[in-house]
Amino acid sequence: MIYLYRLIATAVSMGAAVSFSALANAKTEKHMEPSSEWALDYAEGACRLARMFGEGDEKVLFYLERYQPGDNFSIVVAGAPFEKFARSDVRIQFGESGELREEDVIEADLGRFSPALMISRSTLDEVEDPESRDAKTAKTDADLEPSNPFDLFGQQISPQYEAAVEFVAIESKRRGRVVLETGSLGEPMKAMRKCTDDLISTWGIDIQAHRSLTRRVLIKGDSLGWVRDSDYPTDLIRKGMQGLIYFRLNVDEEGKPTSCNIQRSTRPEEFDRIVCDRLLERAELIPALNAEGTPIESIFQGAVFFTIPN
């Protein structure tokens, strides 16, 4: 089974906030101190902020990853303390002022650090999309109309809010609560912003024009057929191989994808090739508009998840 997600939107569906009374049902609460410094990876297609927590067999890998400036990031947390955390039963909290909220989780195997829980899109706090049409498919003529100018790469969560976040808690009602004592995220997130600002400078688009778009790239028609179940290689199904692939399409003034870049992938590489080949062949998009309402070259980002149902 194959799922395609769009990641470019700045709005995040957080799911329902969970009352802190739920903590009373937790079996254990484990606090984990850092066992490494923060490490920032300037990768070709993404910026990854990572840190280790705990010691020995209990060691945990935690990282945030961004694919463009803004508030969104993906999360990976991995290690023995998360054994038997069910993906349908995971909640996360960023700092004392953050709400405990449900997240959509993908289970993965990172070898030494397993099990791994992956969240494809989250933020430190809930944000509103400056363009209400966000990541919707264009279904009516009204969807195509320019909006008030907005910054595609803007950030709503303030540096002060980031600095106030001093822990990340991951909870399962059945298995307990793991608290990663991160310390203030102020300086780490500042470094992440510098990395993502550098990242977009290599994309071949007019960055300044994207600070005042009146329409981002929209999906034309239905995206469900872009990458299909029949595209899942049978040999990889037999081997039980699954994959999560983050991609970026460059889109011209007519809405045609002109290039495909893999920003991050769990591999194997055959998944990467299939994603780009199929998207360049099948993706139908509506171009972005600049402040004057003129179509311009832009980008479309998303993720494809190849998964084998239980």
Rank of each mutant, 00 (worst) to 15 (best):
I75N: 01
F85S: 09
D104F: 00
G95W: 02
I92W: 01
R48A: 06
F73K: 04
E99L: 14
L61W: 02
E131S: 14
P130Y: 14
E128D: 13
E128L: 12
G111L: 08
I119H: 00
R121P: 00
V76C: 09
R51V: 03
A135C: 04
S88C: 05
P130V: 09
D109C: 12
L117N: 02
D141C: 05
G70L: 15
E145D: 11
A86V: 05
I157C: 01
L124T: 01
R87I: 08
L124H: 04
S88M: 03
G98N: 07
G70W: 13
E162V: 02
A78F: 01
F150G: 15
L124I: 03
E96Q: 09
V90S: 10
D143E: 14
Y67P: 06
S97A: 14
P81N: 14
R112L: 14
L49F: 01
V76H: 05
E126Q: 14
E83K: 15
E99H: 15
P130L: 07
S132T: 12
V77I: 09
A108D: 07
E55A: 12
L61N: 06
P115H: 08
G79V: 08
A163W: 04
K84M: 09
F94V: 05
T123W: 00
V77K: 03
F62W: 06
E126P: 00
I119M: 11
K59G: 04
F153M: 14
F53W: 04
A78Q: 05
E126T: 12
P115E: 07
M52N: 13
N148G: 13
D109S: 08
Q160P: 01
L100I: 05
L144R: 13
L61S: 10
I92L: 10
D71I: 11
A163M: 08
C47I: 03
D134M: 04
T140I: 08
P159K: 05
A138D: 09
A163K: 09
Q68C: 07
R48N: 02
L144F: 00
F53G: 11
E145N: 08
E103T: 10
E126I: 12
G111V: 06
P115G: 08
E131M: 13
V90N: 06
L64H: 02
R112D: 11
L100T: 00
A86I: 06
A163E: 11
C47M: 05
R112W: 14
